[in-house]
Each structure stands twice: as structure tokens, then as C-alpha cells.
Simulated assay, not measured.
Amino acid sequence: MLRHLGADPDPVIRAAGLDLAMLTDPNAIIPLGAFCELIIRSGACTGCPHFGLLLGQRVSLPSLGLIGSIMLRSETVGDALRSLIRHVEMHCIGATTALTAKEGTVIWNCVVYEPGIDCADQIADAAAAAGTNVLRALCGADWCPTEVLLPRSVPADEVIYRQLFGAPVRFNREVAALVFPTSQLDLPIPGADPLLLQTLQERLAEQSRRATPDFASRLRHLVRTELMQGHCSAERIAGLLCMHRRTLARRLNAEGTTFSVVADQGRFEIARQLIDHTDIPFSQIAAALGFSEASAFTRAFRRWSGDSPSAWRAGHRR
């Protein structure tokens, strides 16, 4: 992508603390923080404010390796997407994705849970573009979402977004998401092959056992996902981790923390990303995080950061 935009990739990659060899190794896992630094530097040196969007546009099912092969051999589009979601941490630690269906509409979203990430808007762009490519590979090249949601302020050039997605793009949203009819989950995939699928799934299961994320990453992942769905509690998170609430409390106590602290860290990260990258009113952010009123959110944010939301937005706006 850097070469395509007329830049020399080697100094940019090295300045981000990475080695060019990592980007040619299909099995390499790049830390999300380093990946963000790379995207920020790439956008700066090319003068392209939507570098993440263009990067995501280049993602294809073959680039997803074994998971991509499984998706192409799955029976339906829904089966394929659920396979990707179930094993997304094999490709990305620090961001996650989920699929929800309600009243005939599917929302396929992506959220960043790694703390301190400074390019959540670029990751959202890349995820939405990559997801569109994935669905076009499964449903046909002319597939388009009903609408696209992005957690970023309105860009100077909206046209490139509309052209890429072929659908209305809603900026200043809480999460990145593709919206489309539920009926499309039942569409058959032309290359479905049950026998080959079983073989590929067995290989993936073995790889998954070797790539299990650590407890802290898994916990942040679950807390981030549940917070945005409005039902994050110690009992629920413990159940998702297949342990009793008291076991979770002991595990966290051994690491010098508590569930309430971890949940507040998750709330702060969500709030920080939305304040940094969007123009969403603070009252709306407060509601999304489950606060009964904006003043309660303001007090909590000041406790987390030392600043009010308005002061933070003025000092950290990107």
C-alpha cells in the first residue's frame, strides 16, 4: 500500500519498531500497538488520512489463511462468519468482532479492547472495508451492506467511503459495523465442501490450542464486548470464562486488581476512543456506557483521567 501511494516502506516500517521480514511472514503476529504506529506513520508520510480504509480494502479471504479456507468451504454465509468470529484472535489480539441479529437485521461489528490504542478510527475503517470484501467473496462481487457505521468524525472526503461500500455511511457511531438483512446469513456458499471443511476444522482446532490468548487479553476482550451490549457483570464474565464468580475474584485479587477496576478500565477505554475520534455528544457516550446521566459520566471520567470529557477532547482531538 505504501509503494502504491509512492512511499518507501522500509523506513516507515522501521520507524514503527518493526522489521520488514515480519510483513512477509504470513504467520507473524504484529502487536496491535505497533500496527497502529505503522498506520499512523503511513498516513502521515503519504498524506492519506484514510490509509486504514485503503489497507482494509486489500484484505481477501486467502489472506486469512486457514480461517479463510474454512469460510469458503462452509455451508452458509452465517456459518462462515461465525467461524471467523470464533477464531478471530488467531489473527488479531486487541480487537474483536461480533454478530447480532434483531428484527430482520444483522449487525456485524468490530471493537478495539487493547488499552492505549491511538488509531481506533483507522482500525475501524480497515475492519469495515475488510468485512465488506469478505462478504463480497461469499455473497458475490456486487454485494453491498444496507448501511455502514463508523466510530469516527465525518472525514473531509466522504465520497471515497460511499464509493467503497456502495451504501450510506453513518459517522460518529459507537462501534464500527456492517448492517445487512438477516436473510443473507442463510445464503449458500457455492464452494461448500463438508468433507474438506471437517479436515480444515481439525487443523484449525490444533492451531487454536497453540494460540490461546493470555487471561488478561481474554478478560479485556469479554469486558469490552459486554460493556457495549449493556450487560457487563462479574457473574456474566465469570460464566463466559467457565469459572465461578468467586474464582474470578480470587484470580483478579492475585493479580492485584478487582472486577470493578477492570470494568472501569474498559469503560475509560471506550470513552477515550469515542471522545478522541468522534463528535458524539457526551450524553450519548454516557448512555452507551450505562450511566444514568451525563453528570455521573463526567465525574467518573474525571476520576479515570484527571480531566473532564470536554477538556480531554480539547487536548487529545485527532
Score class of each variant (00 low, 15 high):
1 M>Y: 08
2 L>C: 00
9 P>R: 07
12 V>C: 04
24 T>F: 15
28 A>K: 15
33 G>R: 08
34 A>G: 07
40 I>V: 09
51 F>M: 01
52 G>H: 01
52 G>M: 07
57 Q>W: 07
58 R>W: 09
62 P>L: 07
80 A>L: 06
84 L>E: 02
84 L>Q: 05
86 R>P: 11
88 V>E: 14
93 I>T: 03
93 I>S: 00
93 I>L: 05
96 T>P: 13
98 A>V: 02
103 E>I: 09
105 T>V: 15
106 V>Y: 02
108 W>F: 10
111 V>R: 09
112 V>C: 09
118 D>P: 13
122 Q>E: 09
125 D>N: 09
131 G>D: 01
131 G>N: 04
137 A>T: 09
137 A>D: 02
138 L>E: 02
141 A>N: 07
143 W>Q: 01
152 R>N: 04
152 R>M: 13
161 Y>T: 00
166 G>H: 04
167 A>M: 04
169 V>A: 03
173 R>N: 12
176 A>V: 03
177 A>F: 00
178 L>T: 02
183 S>E: 14
184 Q>P: 05
187 L>V: 12
192 A>P: 06
195 L>F: 11
199 T>L: 15
200 L>M: 03
206 E>W: 07
213 P>G: 00
220 R>Q: 12
221 H>T: 11
226 E>I: 02
227 L>Q: 05
228 M>G: 15
229 Q>E: 12
230 G>M: 03
236 R>E: 14
236 R>S: 08
237 I>V: 07
242 C>E: 13
247 T>H: 11
250 R>S: 15
254 A>L: 09
255 E>P: 14
255 E>C: 13
255 E>L: 14
261 V>I: 11
261 V>L: 11
262 V>C: 10
262 V>F: 09
263 A>G: 14
264 D>I: 08
269 E>G: 08
269 E>F: 02
271 A>W: 00
272 R>G: 00
275 I>Q: 04
275 I>H: 03
277 H>V: 07
277 H>R: 04
281 P>W: 01
282 F>A: 14
283 S>W: 08
285 I>E: 00
289 L>E: 02
291 F>N: 05
293 E>I: 12
297 F>W: 02
302 R>S: 10
303 R>H: 05
315 G>D: 06
317 R>V: 12
